[in-house]
């Protein structure tokens, strides 16, 4: 729990689709190992993917990256990727939960499912980030984060490899920050209250 202009954030949720691997490399790669709050990521991957992406990102990033296990407790300084073919959700009490409920927005994992359940648990203490991607997954979720008092960050569509996902989010809600991809890590670091 860290302060930022009186606001304390408890978690970051990130949704990304097409173009996600290089975007995640850049964003997660710039977060420090002692990033003070957990980061939860949904990226659209094919149903039979293994945890290769998490392992790759873990080797490239200072911060720990892993694929979420069922009912895993979240710890600060860790990034949790939703496993292929499962929705990832947040439970009260700070654990992750997985489900094989039907696809949402043609996706499992779905960004909306993560964002909505995280918003229900964290309310105003949540930062939601939508980055490059096709489709509109995450728009409703980010809107829910906003309505629960949380903060919405959207990658500038002009900067995104695929602009549909950020554009769709911006049509549905008023983002707190519309930024370039490279500006996302310093923003998160500032909001999470990492000491310089």
């Amino acid at each position: 729990m860290q302060k930022n202009n009186g606001r304390k954030f408890k978690a970051v949720v990130i949704g990304v689709s097409t173009g996600g691997v290089s975007a995640l490399k850049l964003v997660l790669g710039a977060l420090p190992a002692d990033f003070p709050i957990p980061v939860l990521v949904v990226t659209h991957i094919t149903p039979d993917s293994d945890d290769g992406l998490a392992i790759l990102l873990d080797t490239l990033c200072a911060i720990r990256v892993k694929e979420a296990d069922d009912q895993e407790p979240m710890i600060p300084g860790s990034v949790y990727l939703a496993p292929a073919n499962y929705h990832m959700m947040v439970e009260r009490g700070g654990t992750l939960a997985l489900s094989i409920d039907p696809l949402v927005n043609f996706a499992r994992p779905s960004v909306d499912v993560l964002f909505e359940t995280a918003a229900e648990v964290y309310g105003p203490a949540l930062i939601g980030v939508i980055m490059t991607g096709a489709g509109n997954d995450g728009s409703k979720g980010l809107s829910k984060i906003k309505s629960c008092g949380g903060m919405a960050i959207v990658q500038d569509p002009a900067d995104a490899e695929m602009d549909a996902m950020p554009r769709s989010a911006l049509q549905l809600l008023k983002a707190d920050h519309i930024v370039l991809l490279v500006e996302i890590p310093p923003l998160l670091i500032r909001l999470a209250g990492v000491k310089p």
């Binding site: 959700m89 439970e91 009260r92 939960a97 359940t117």
Partner: peptide, 9 residues
């Protein structure tokens, strides 16, 4: 039952 799924369903 775990809450997040139950609540969604």
């Amino acid at each position: 039952y775990s809450e997040a799924s139950l609540r969604r369903r």
